[in-house]
Write a protein that binds this DNA or RNA. Structure first.
Lengths: 166, 166
DNA sequence: ACCCCAACTGAGACTGGTTCTCATTCGTAT
DNA sequence: ATACGAATGAGAACCAGTCTCAGTTGGGGT
């Protein structure tokens, strides 16, 4: 997994006087490898030697250092992904049938329109936007094909077919 | 509070062989009156005689009947709002300084651009969008003015100044 | 009017994801 | 070498949300 990534992460941690330990490196690798938000369960599967208490604690530390972002899904547990200034800005496709969460990178045109909208929000309501989160709910390709819960519940080893990219 | 609203809610409940009881009416009134997603805490304040277990149970029932939508914020507890086919489609402005959540109704132009984007998503990734949620994070007018946590934590009685509308 | 059955209610016990505590170990700067 | 702050793992604690259960309500059918 790209050495540049680890360099960046280490830098961000050091800035917060934190160390880039083995546990944290493991977490970063799981998040980077998944390409979509992962739950604690997913992490436990891919890093079985890492105790949950340590995973939770380190995810908080990584979040404070601006490396990880916590994503509230609509089910009971939260998921985690690398922050957008490490990866890139993207949106989520949430399959309401199987629960899987996919990433999409929006085309420039759409983000321009978004920026215009956020400017209008500031002008009218005085709310200064810093960031946004767009989650799209619907049915993923696999579930559409089968008419059934084809894809396994979120986050088994290799997540699966399409990495949506526009 | 608009009689039409109660008629619609009652109809949706009856369709699910549920009754529109006093507790449920209270909940609907709190949600309709707030104009932004409310937490259980907010509900407890505005309807102190309603036990939490009943509030939770009824919120689930109302959600199943398509009257209420559960909104996962980024803090620890979920909030509730009337479903969009009862009110209208809108987005959320989440103030990261004071926690307040405001509603915004997007201009038609923006939603057109959104629809185009979702079509492109379908074409490229095969994901069929049914619904979307756009949350904008930033700083609300009150917090910007004061440079401090001016607005009280989410959901005191009368939420406050601007109801953002574009 | 009455009955009946399913829906509803409130109090409190319970669940389970997440956080906290604490004794121990690790890393690094002096 | 030493010291001190950071990190760790095991398990206890926390608490939003759910479930249970015994009792109440309400409305449709006779």
């Amino acid at each position: 997994m790209s050495e540049a990534l680890h360099g960046l992460v280490e830098h961000k941690l050091r800035r917060a006087s934190q160390r880039y330990t083995q546990s944290r490196r493991q977490l970063v690798e799981v998040l980077a490898g998944a390409g979509h938000p992962v739950s604690i369960e997913d992490i436990a599967i891919q890093a079985p030697r890492l105790p949950r208490s340590s995973a939770y604690r380190n995810l908080v530390d990584l979040e404070l250092a601006g490396i990880v972002r916590r994503v509230a899904a609509n089910d009971d547990y939260s998921r985690y992904e690398l922050a957008e200034d490490i990866t890139e800005h993207h949106h989520h496709l949430v399959c309401t049938r199987c629960g899987r969460v996919l990433d999409v990178t929006p085309p420039a045109g759409f983000e321009t329109s978004m920026a215009g909208y956020l400017d209008a929000v500031l002008a009218v309501s005085g709310f200064r936007a810093a960031d946004h989160r767009l989650d799209v709910f619907g049915t993923c390709a696999a579930c559409l094909q089968s008419g059934e819960d084809a894809c396994r519940q979120a986050g088994e080893d290799e997540p699966g077919p399409q990495e949506a990219l526009i």
